[in-house]
Structure formats: structure tokens, C-alpha cells
Amino acid sequence: MDYALAIDNVPDSIPGGTGILLLHPSIGETDRIDTDFLKTDTDHFLVISTRTTAREVEQKLEHYDVDESRAVILDTLSVERGYSRRGTDHVHYVSAPDDLDGIVSKTAAFLGSHDGKRRISVDSVTEMAYYADVDGAYEASERLLGLLEEHDAVGLFHLSNEVHGEETIRRFRDLFDVVVELDADGSVSADF
């Protein structure tokens, strides 16, 4: 199954099972790319948020006019920050951004319980590496890519190219079929 893409300077579609690495500057405007990715040609999507709370993700989706009825949010921050939260059908929680097994498990549950065209957004791998470590974030990304392939879904994985060294960036680049780079001026290029 192919998935349409709405990202500048990239092909019009990608096959199911594909993971896209989004390399961006720390202050880069990734929200537009992320929300365009999520709302195009999608029946259901999962936002794995290691950078913002579920409430902030909901505000972003609303601001960019994304159909929230298709959204499931995995909030990895609220519990650690001490916010009292109960999960709903559309919002789930793990204990912290370094609960990588929990993140992978909840993603597998999402992909297994929804059908049609499914997308995931991991915002961000950089935060996973910050809370756990680079090796843990790499292994979790590898496991998530395996789930995408198994379920014929696609994913967008955020990684800041200003925070990590060249060796780490190259390691993640090699893991993904597609690399999209967002420059500080907002221009986008892609390597397939």
C-alpha cells in the first residue's frame, strides 16, 4: 500500500513500511511538516510525544486543522512531571521518555488495533536519547521501524541535527530509507 506525502521536494508517495528521518535544527519549524504528514492520506495516526504533553499535541493538531478524531496520542512526559492523568481511548501514557519498552509496546498495540492507512510521528528521537541514551533511542527506533514494516504503516521520526554529533547522525541516517532535511531557513531537501 502506498501513502501520499505532502512534503516539499520529496516524491508524491512512499510505500507502507517506510520510516522517514526528519533532520532539523533545534529551533526548526517542524510542526508544519509533521501535521501535513499526519493529515494526508491517513485513517489513523499515533503521535509519540517525548517533547510535549498530550494537551500541547492536541493544541498543535487543532491549530493546523488536523482531524483529531483520527488521532491517538502517547504522552511520555505528564506522568514524570507529576501531572495526574488517566488514559482515554485517544490518549495513553507511559512513565517517562526513557520508557522505551513502553513506547514500543503502546505503538504495537495502536498498530494492531487500528486498520487502514496508519502513520506514526515520533517527536522526538532526540528527546528519547536525552532521557535514555543514544543506543536506547537507536534500538527503539529500529524496533518501531520493524513494526511499521509488519503493519504496512509509515512513520516520521524527528532528530535534531544540532544536538547530536556527526557519527550519531550518520548512524540514524543509515537506519532509515528516507531522510528529509529541514534547514534553518525553512527549505526542505530529501534523500531517498
Rank of each mutant, 00 (worst) to 15 (best):
M1S: 10
D2V: 12
Y3T: 10
L5C: 00
I7M: 06
V10G: 00
D12T: 11
S13R: 15
I14M: 03
G16L: 00
G16E: 06
G19Q: 00
L23D: 01
H24G: 13
P25K: 07
S26L: 13
I27H: 13
G28E: 01
E29D: 13
T30G: 05
D31C: 07
D31M: 12
D34S: 15
T35C: 06
L38E: 03
K39N: 10
K39I: 04
H44M: 08
V47H: 12
V47I: 02
I48K: 14
I48H: 02
S49L: 02
T50P: 07
A54H: 12
R55Y: 14
E58Y: 12
E58W: 15
Q59S: 14
V66A: 09
D67E: 14
A71P: 10
T76I: 14
T76L: 08
R81P: 06
R81N: 15
G82I: 01
G87E: 15
H92E: 07
V94Q: 09
S95M: 14
P97A: 04
P97H: 10
S105N: 07
K106L: 04
F110V: 04
L111H: 10
S113M: 13
D115N: 11
R119F: 02
S121V: 11
V122C: 07
V122F: 06
T126L: 11
M128F: 12
A129G: 14
A132C: 02
V134Y: 09
A137S: 03
A140E: 02
G146D: 04
L148D: 02
E150D: 08
E150M: 10
V154K: 11
V154I: 15
V154S: 01
F157T: 08
V163L: 13
H164Q: 10
G165E: 06
E167S: 13
T168S: 00
I169E: 01
R170K: 14
R171H: 13
R173K: 15
R173G: 02
L175M: 12
F176D: 03
F176G: 09
D177E: 09
V178D: 08
V178L: 08
V180E: 08
D185E: 08
G186I: 06
G186P: 01
S189T: 14
D191F: 05
